[in-house]
Write a protein that binds this DNA or RNA. Structure first.
Length: 477
RNA sequence: GGCCCCAUCGUCUAGUGGCCUAGGACACCAGGUUUUCAUCCUGGAAACGGGGGUUCGAUUCCCCCUGGGGUCACCA
């Protein structure tokens, strides 16, 4: 049975790096029709940020990563918050003590610091196991004192589902704290116990834990439990490509993408192909496709830089693929405050801008002029500075606009009729589309760029279009 | 510093000894689709870090170097 887990600590928002780890774990579980478990690793009360747990679930839900077991739907393997499992860790720690594989450590943190500095001065690696008492205090749990694992140094080689065959020497194995003086377990201990009790089959986590794996291996042996499969994911690197993506260096809250109008499908696709591909030239994958095709051993071993350009392109691609109805629903919350028009009008506007939307929060700047009059000053300066228009005299421009008004006032304002009449004007005025159409486009939009002209006129409507054209004529005096 | 991991266009990547005059995508540049911007289409520029091996033949296997990253907590 395949069971994977995502085990974040509730210390703030999730960014794309963390979410990608969750996605990969989820894909592995779903592919095998197994379970995906959310476990909250809240063993460091000092770092906890209120609301994190809720935020984590919101992120997963938004992306469509269903949680089979977790704090909200606790099943037989719960509780799924480590802070609620303290008794379990104590029990296992006591068992280790009884076996002679853990001991009470009375060294103070201050002394530890001194010992570390000493070792550093001597240019020797600091290994606690060299210092441990000959016959460690084996008395059971002592309130307010940490418990340390008694390691058995040895070389290890093991297989990692992503990284391949890995090995280390005995020098990396050391005694480490399993239970802190506040009674909470450390990550190193708690996750091993929980993964075992929750019957996790694949531990999928990011690279920072790689150097600790031999310690875990040593612990698995001491506990006499079978270790799960291990999969280590490379980092998602920041935009500079130098460091792993982190909040400190400006990584965004995943929900910021939601707020910006990115589609979950796009984010999932982007995240999945950031460090993974199926060996073909396919770029676009739906979630079901990912479930079918994802392979841990096809995950890249090196870090992948987070490239927002590519995300932008992909999101635009998904927006273009939306039906009118879907887009209309998704865009509902993104309209500018000025958009007080009825839904049919808004939908027409959407039809015109769908191709150029990269993310939904762009809607206001792209569609403003459909809802409020363009600024006369903007129209005026654009009419004067436009590449195509700057060498045309004011009189000619005025003349052309007047003819346009005249012609369009006779129009039924169907798309075909607008097109026909403007084309007729073109030959009548002996001018090029580049000139006449630019003129009209700027007059009705007051924007440096706008959607296709005939459609824009039609959506705007006869009355508004003519008003704006007349307004522009006045502005040219 | 010790230990560990990694290394193909600017970026994400294909490539598991000959199919590679190294393929695709994003971004970029040029041209086209009756204006602009976007879309779409066509074309272009753009990479195997260096040095040794192994081999008839290395992007692909091995070693060294270089470079990058991570880790050495009573944080996860």
């Amino acid at each position: 049975m395949v069971r994977t887990r995502f085990a974040p600590s509730p210390t703030g928002f999730l960014h794309v790096g963390g979410v990608r780890t969750a996605l990969f774990a989820w894909l592995v579980a779903k592919q095998a029709k197994g379970q995906f478990i959310l476990r909250i690793e809240d063993t460091d009360k000092t770092r906890e940020v209120a609301g994190s747990e809720k935020h984590i679930m919101e992120c997963l839900t938004w992306l469509g990563l269903s949680i089979d077991e977790g704090p909200d739907n606790s099943l037989e393997f719960g509780p799924y918050r480590q802070s609620q499992r303290l008794d379990i860790y104590k029990k296992w720690a006591k068992q280790l003590i009884d076996m002679g594989r853990a001991y009470v450590d009375t060294t103070t943190p201050e002394d530890l610091d001194k010992l570390r500095e000493l070792a550093k001065a001597k240019k020797q690696p600091f290994l606690y196991r060299n210092l441990r008492p000959d016959s460690p205090i084996s008395q059971p749990y002592l309130e307010g004192t940490p418990i340390r694992f008694k390691s058995e140094p040895k070389p290890y080689s093991w297989h990692d589902e992503v990284m391949g065959d890995l090995s280390t020497g005995p020098e990396v194995i050391d005694d480490f704290i399993i239970l802190k003086s506040d009674g909470f377990p450390t990550y190193n201990f708690a996750h091993v116990i929980d993964d075992h009790l929750m019957k996790i089959s694949h531990v999928i986590r990011s690279q920072e834990f790689l150097p600790s794996v031999p310690k875990f291996l040593n612990l698995y042996e001491a506990l006499e439990i079978k270790r799960p499969k291990l999969a280590t994911l490379p980092y998602v690197m920041g935009p500079d490509g130098k460091k792993k993506l982190s909040k400190r260096d400006g990584a965004k809250d995943l929900l910021d993408y939601q707020r910006q109008g990115f589609l979950p499908e796009a984010l999932v696709n982007f995240l999945a192909t950031l460090g993974w591909n199926d060996g073909t030239e396919q770029e676009i994958f739906s979630l079901p496709e990912l479930i079918a095709k994802f392979q841990l051993n096809k995950v890249q071993r090196s870090g992948a830089r987070f490239d927002e350009q590519r995300l932008l392109w992909m999101n635009g691609h998904y927006i273009r693929g939306l039906s009118k109805k879907q887009l209309s629903a998704k865009a509902a919350d993104f309209w500018p405050a000025t958009a007080k028009a009825d839904q049919a009008y808004k939908d027409d506007v959407l039809g015109l801008v769908q191709d150029r939307l990269k993310f939904l929060a762009e809607l206001p700047e792209l569609t403003n002029f459909f809802f409020e009059e363009p600024k006369t000053s903007a129209v005026k300066s654009l009419l004067n500075e436009d590449q195509q228009l700057k060498n045309i005299s004011q009189e000619t421009k005025q003349q052309m606009l007047k003819e346009t008004v005249k012609e369009l006032s006779m129009s039924s304002f169907s798309l075909a009729d607008i097109k026909e009449r403007l084309n007729k004007l073109l030959s009548q005025l002996e001018t090029k589309p580049a000139i006449l159409f630019s003129l009209v486009r700027i007059a009705i939009s007051g924007a440096p760029s706008s959607p296709e002209l005939f459609g824009t006129l039609k959506v705007l409507g006869k009355q508004k279009s003519l008003e704006r054209l007349n307004q522009a004529i006045l502005g040219l005096v």
